[in-house]
Design a binder for these strands. Structure first.
Lengths: 245, 245
DNA sequence: GAGTGGTCTAGACCACGCA
DNA sequence: GCGTGGTCTAGACCACTCT
């Protein structure tokens, strides 16, 4: 992977610790180390890559801030595992008025394969025509629907996902576990919308109920878009929480 | 501020670099260095505080990630200045459909002083009864209203703010410049709402228009709440952008 | 006690901005 | 050419975890 030939001083080369970052990020997304497994120690990686331990440390620290790994003093460095709970915490942001988190279940309404439309080809960077999977779900809390979700993913990255039995909870743990896709961030566009007849029926809410519409594009560590999702949230009893930094 | 007496090895003491962080953060919020002014160099600070340059560096790096300072190679370390443009970029998140940023103007509808209600006393941590300033504004783009804002701030922290002449643009530059209040982050609760008669009139939109309601609490570096703001955004033509990490 | 990550130090050299 | 921050190294010691 890394040879001592491309050391520092090379004009225009990225800093060493970023090269280490890239190398480790690649090996993680290629499955060299699986979720929840530990990486070699800082010294072992340093020796293997021919750099100092401090340089490896800096790369690992950045991987930790990007939530790709978790470090535990005295134990080691572990590939972040997307559990149902923390994935829900990070990416499903509906909260009760008192700030407590919801833990919704899901109900699949439909799932089918179809050709990507133009927007999806752009988002996913398809060179030519290719298929996507579209999943329609309902998110449910206390037996009441709180959100509809339309999820679109490239078929090529998620073969046979329709046969999976765990499509009712957070999908990102499934993406990571079964398909080696690590979602690390997402950009969202929010707007306020009025429930039409179909949305109202799905959410068991009156037509005309104000809904919070969230258009999300989810990315891997490499910046690759791997999911396009439109959610419509019933915020009459819940709020969507955001921290601005 | 920092004495060499409380060096490392003290049981339960915070790491040195965090003490340095606190010390520098305090001196900045006390106005020892003003916005856009430069701090002493890493070596100068290290000598002054009796720690190594690497320790100062680590503290400065964290202050930079928290957007309290900005570092420029070859020039120095500067106290972040909240300009109208970047404050707008960070805290006013309405964008056009193509992702481009709005640069709204503001119109003051009312401004008055009154006693804090119970919620405000809790948010601002008032021990006893105290006054707040409430500002009602309209944000305008291309001569069209796009948002209403109700802004509540503690009177004690912002004396005579009603006499300021720059209440029509981003307020955080004003807070920083005139009152030494550095807003560094905010938590927001979003929900979808229907425009009532009053909101509709202010926004020149039909009654029943879906609005994105944003309840924000803004904090300083010390975690102190210094502003409570409710905005209602007309998202028929614009979206509210969020990055999820 | 052995092994891991966390803190702190000291020093070398590079890249950048400016006079 | 000097002063700044940025990178990289080497080594010491601390705090935590497990056996």
């Amino acid at each position: 992977m890394h040879s001592t030939a491309d050391m520092n001083n090379t004009v225009g080369s990225r800093p060493l610790y970023k090269q280490v970052y890239d190398s480790l990020a690649n090996r993680i997304s290629e499955g060299d180390w699986k979720p929840a497994q530990s990486l070699p120690s800082e010294f072992a990686l340093a020796a293997e890559l021919g750099v100092s331990q401090g340089t490896v440390r800096k790369a690992l620290t950045e991987l930790e801030t990007d939530k790709v790994v978790e470090r535990r003093q005295g134990k080691g460095t572990f590939v972040s595992e997307h559990t149902d709970e923390d994935s829900n915490f990070r990416f499903f942001r509906l909260t009760r008025r008192d700030g407590s988190r919801l833990m919704p279940t899901g109900k699949i309404e439909s799932i089918h394969r179809r050709p990507a439309n133009r927007l999806e080809r752009t988002v996913f960077g398809f060179e030519e025509s290719d298929d996507v999977i579209e999943i329609c779900r309902l998110r449910i809390v206390d037996d009441l629907p709180c959100a509809t979700e339309n999820i679109v993913i490239p078929h090529r990255l998620f073969p046979d996902i329709e046969k999976s039995t765990s499509l009712t909870t957070s999908l990102y743990p499934l993406y990571q576990r079964e398909f080696g896709i690590h979602v690390v961030n997402a950009e969202e566009q929010l707007r306020s919308e009025i429930a039409n007849k179909q949305q109202a029926k799905r959410l068991k809410a009156p037509i005309g109920t104000p809904l919070l519409r969230v258009d999300r594009i989810a990315h891997t560590i490499h910046g690759q878009a791997v999911e396009r999702r439109t959610s419509r949230l019933d915020t009459r009893n819940y709020s969507y929480s955001v921290m601005v930094n």
